[in-house]
């Protein structure tokens, strides 16, 4: 190549431009495909589900008939799904945040224990959800529940704790979503300027005071992001509930943590596999799916609103 040749870029660039167009097109097509799939799902569900939605549908139960339009309702499932998601959040946030604080603020980064915990968290995230269901059955119901029954109600032949329940289902979901919360919280802690911690410690604050009063309030939006991700993941899960708490049918709403509950996701499964007449049940099925989607969005939107408010308040002052 001559000295001038280096600057004659016209020849090669035409082929480059062609590739560029092709590549842009391919990425655009991939994006469009994803959007199209999402649109098909949402439009399909909304289109078929909307007619089924009525005040009666979202406030009634299934006492009259589970599979017949006009008689069936999904209120017990809305209640059950909301309850298990909120309970799960109450369990997973404290444990996840505490773990992340230990990992980021206390543990030596190079210690064997830290590495073991991190590997465990990463692997936990990759376990199929049905396995969490089996874990919940084995650990919470049979290991914990049976022992609680032995200790608390030794004379009662019927198990109270050692059976599927709202409590065990929520705990199982909490174990499943733990990695999400830990990772998001650690990310939030890492994002804080180390100068903040030093400033507090140099004023004579203890580590605990620094974490409690400086680190955590500033990491709160990040922690809530973890909570939002956990809720998103858990709200639609069915597999972990199969053995741990979801009921096919219950005449009443759960009244205690040891009761079983009906669940929207599980109900979709019930409607699509147990109906004597699927054609007749289909509108209810669509309606239930639409309610599940709306509930998931609503739970997420609430968490996002809380986070946005918190950020605004933090920016305004302390």
């Amino acid at each position: 190549m001559t000295l001038h040749g280096r600057w004659e870029v016209g020849g090669g660039s035409r082929r480059g431009a062609a590739w560029s167009v092709l590549f842009t097109g391919a990425t655009g097509l991939a994006t469009a495909l994803i959007l199209a799939m999402l649109a098909v799902i949402l439009v399909n569900v909304a289109w078929h589900g909307w007619p089924a939605l009525s005040w009666r549908f979202v406030t009634a139960g299934t006492e009259a008939d589970m599979f017949e339009v006009g008689k069936a309702g999904v209120f017990p499932m809305i209640f059950g799904t909301t309850a298990r998601v909120i309970l799960m959040t109450l369990f997973v946030i404290p444990v996840g945040v505490t773990t992340a604080i230990y990992l980021h603020e206390y543990a030596h980064t190079t210690s064997v224990l830290t590495r073991v915990i991190r590997t465990a968290v990463a692997n936990l995230a990759g376990v199929p959800s049905i396995v969490f269901g089996l874990f919940g059955l084995g650990f919470f119901i049979h290991f914990l529940g049976d022992r609680l029954d032995l200790v608390l109600h030794p004379d009662n032949p019927k198990p109270i704790w050692g059976k599927p329940a709202l409590l065990w289902a929520s705990l199982t979901l909490a174990v499943m979503t733990l990695p999400v919360v830990i990772v998001a919280t650690e990310e939030a802690l890492r994002g804080l300027s180390p100068g903040l911690r030093e400033a507090s410690l140099a004023l004579g604050a203890t580590k605990l005071q620094t974490i409690w009063q400086i680190v955590l309030p500033n990491a709160l939006p990040g922690i809530l992001t973890g909570g939002i991700l956990a809720v998103s993941r858990a709200a639609g899960e069915v597999a972990p509930l199969l053995f741990t708490g979801a009921a096919y049918y219950m005449a009443e709403l759960p009244r205690s943590l040891t009761d079983q509950f009906m669940d929207l996701g599980y109900h979709v499964f019930v409607l699509s596999t147990q109906s004597p007449n699927l054609e007749q049940t289909r509108p209810i099925l669509y309606g239930t799916v639409l309610v599940l989607l709306l509930l998931t969005f609503a739970l997420n939107a609430t968490a996002i609103l809380v986070r946005a408010r918190m950020r605004r308040r933090q920016r305004a002052a302390g």
């Binding site: 300027s193 100068g195 903040l196 030093e198 400033a199 507090s200 410690l201 140099a202 004023l203 004579g204 604050a205 005071q209 009063q213 400086i214 500033n218 933090q314 002052a317 302390g318």
Partner: peptide, 30 residues
């Protein structure tokens, strides 16, 4: 206890993301 008697100012100013008042009140409350 030592750090309550030996104060420090850092290269990069590091006020807490709190109000001006709370930045100082935090130290006093400690």
């Amino acid at each position: 206890e030592l750090r309550k008697r030996v104060g420090m100012v850092f290269q990069k100013s590091n006020p807490f993301p709190k109000s001006i008042y709370e930045n100082i009140a935090y130290a006093l409350r400690l």
